[in-house]
Amino acid sequence: MRFLAKLGELDVRWFYLAMILAIVATALLPTPMKVRLSPESEKYYNTIENLDGRKPVLVQSDWDQGTVGELRAQFINTVRHLFRKNVRVVFVSGIASGPEFYEPVVEQIAREYGKEYGKDWVSFGYKLAEPYDIAIEAIARDFPATVQLDAKGKRPSDYPWLRNVRTAADFALAISIRYDEMRAYITYFYEAAGTPYIAGVATISSTPLYPFLSTGNLRGLLVGSRGGGEYEQAMGKREYGTRFLSGQSAGHLLILIAILFGNIGYWASRRIRARGEE
């Protein structure tokens, strides 16, 4: 009983050490995990799958160093899916460091699918500054005036396929991949112009979004690293997103073991105290 009671008194630093060792192990070992699309990820996948490629898609990419773990796989596979469907893509960002992260990734995927800058995709960089509601309203009302110049210093009108893109109605779909969702797209793209909106978010931000999914205001949702891993496997790949799931599972398993140890220790120490009082 005393041994069990000691489980609850373990120095928390042993737990930290075990956690880091478990994560290091998942970085070095191959990943056998296989997952299927959850209903919210399936909706996200189908929304892109049903695009006909006549209108471009607006992608807001706001992942950087703080969210790279959860959002990188979501972004990579979203771009892959759009390029596979031969959809033209317009990239914008709502954070200053956004373009530094997404542009090299898009260039690499574009090479994979034989896509060219200016013909199949363009990047306007950091054009959605806070307050985001006003920035998204501006892009929905007058896209060329809001984004002004792209990464190459050209105006939207310099690209033939962007000449007629002026408002939210001229986009086929709006996608945001960032820590939390951009509800302004629901107001200014979906409700005002009928352009659907899908989002990839960090897990922490996902809980309040499910009601929006069931009403259809949000057409699809990717939730954290799970959403990224599921989407990656739906795209027939097994890379970073899949590998990440094993790290996440190892961490969760360790947390469950720690909770179990803590509760056993607590129960044992209460038993010891009760016997002492008798």
Binding site: A27, E70, T203, I204, I255
Partner: peptide
């Protein structure tokens, strides 16, 4: 909410530890 919070925090740690490795 709390479970999802833990998942995000863990994801940040995993990414950083993998980066170091």
């Amino acid at each position: 909410y709390f479970g999802n919070t833990i998942m995000t925090r863990l994801a940040v740690l995993i990414e950083r530890v993998w980066f170091v490795v």
